[in-house]
Amino acid sequence: MELTVVLGDITEQEVDAVVNAASRAMRGGAGVDGAIHRAGGSEVLADCIRRFPHGLATGDAGWTTAGHLRARWVIHVVGPNWGRGERDRSLLTSCYARALEVADELGARSVAFPLVSAGAYSWPKDDAVAAAAQTLRATPTSVDEARMVAFDAATYSALEAAVADG
């Protein structure tokens, strides 16, 4: 699998699936979650309600339609909230591994990932970057391209360095 890094907006990626850093409730929210729900439209929320009436557990992943996004699917992952005391790194790495498992089940060949838990959930950025790069590299998958999408230049630089070190 090719691991790439781009600077941009995850909602504008032309890939088979985009990964959403969702809340446990799976009803939209702030940051990446809000952006994906806004860009994808009401179909994304309706599918979340239908497929995940009780939400998802931290570290898990599930998929919905992508609605109006360029992607075919949204793979929702629930990262740990460092700011609320969820500091088990295995929950963070599980988000990436489970997202690839779901992508394989769907037959997705290209997947765009945000940096899970590093925004509103306050996971230390350096460790979030390392966890993403290490897990994506180490997880067996049929996905051809895992694309890390950085929203800002500092995150892009950190991800680029982590991918180059691999």
Rank of each mutant, 00 (worst) to 15 (best):
R147V: 03
G28K: 06
G79Y: 04
L100T: 08
V44R: 00
G59H: 12
M1Q: 09
A103P: 07
A35T: 13
R38H: 15
E14N: 14
F113H: 03
C48M: 14
R98E: 05
D144F: 10
Y156V: 06
H68L: 13
S90K: 14
L91K: 01
T139P: 02
S157I: 02
L106A: 11
A154G: 10
A118W: 01
C95E: 02
A128H: 04
A132D: 01
L7W: 05
G41N: 09
L56A: 11
V78Y: 08
G29P: 05
A154R: 09
D127Y: 02
A30Y: 02
A112V: 01
A61P: 10
E160S: 07
A108Q: 04
A30P: 02
T139I: 10
W73T: 00
G29H: 04
A97S: 15
A120M: 08
A128W: 00
A158K: 01
D33Q: 05
T139S: 07
Y96Q: 02
A164H: 14
D47H: 11
V32C: 13
G8N: 02
S90L: 14
W73C: 02
D33C: 09
A30K: 05
D47V: 06
R84P: 12
R27K: 11
A99K: 04
E101K: 12
R38S: 15
S157T: 03
C95Q: 00
D60R: 15
D104F: 06
I10Y: 02
E145I: 07
F151H: 15
G40E: 10
A46M: 15
R147Y: 03
A138E: 05
A158G: 05
S157W: 00
R84K: 15
A25S: 12
H68Y: 14
F52D: 08
H76E: 12
G55L: 08
Y156T: 02
G28F: 04
H68M: 13
V18N: 05
R38V: 15
V78H: 04
P140M: 14
V77S: 03
A21N: 10
A133Q: 02
A132K: 01
A132N: 03
L106Q: 06
R50F: 07
A146R: 03
V74H: 09
A103Q: 04
D165C: 06
G67H: 09
P140S: 12
R87S: 07
A161D: 09
L69N: 10
V143Q: 01
R89S: 12
A112P: 01
P80W: 03
L115N: 05
G107I: 12
A150Q: 02
A108S: 12
G34I: 11
I75Y: 00
L106M: 13
A118G: 06
R70N: 09
A132G: 02
G40P: 11
T141F: 08
A131H: 06
S23R: 09
L3D: 00
S122H: 14
L69D: 06
T64C: 09
G28Q: 11
L106C: 12
A71M: 12
G67N: 11
P140H: 11
V129E: 00
A103M: 09
V78T: 09
G41Y: 05
G34M: 13
F52K: 08
L56F: 12
L45D: 13
A130W: 01
D127F: 03
A21S: 13
G67M: 08
L100V: 12
L92I: 04
A153W: 15
I36W: 05
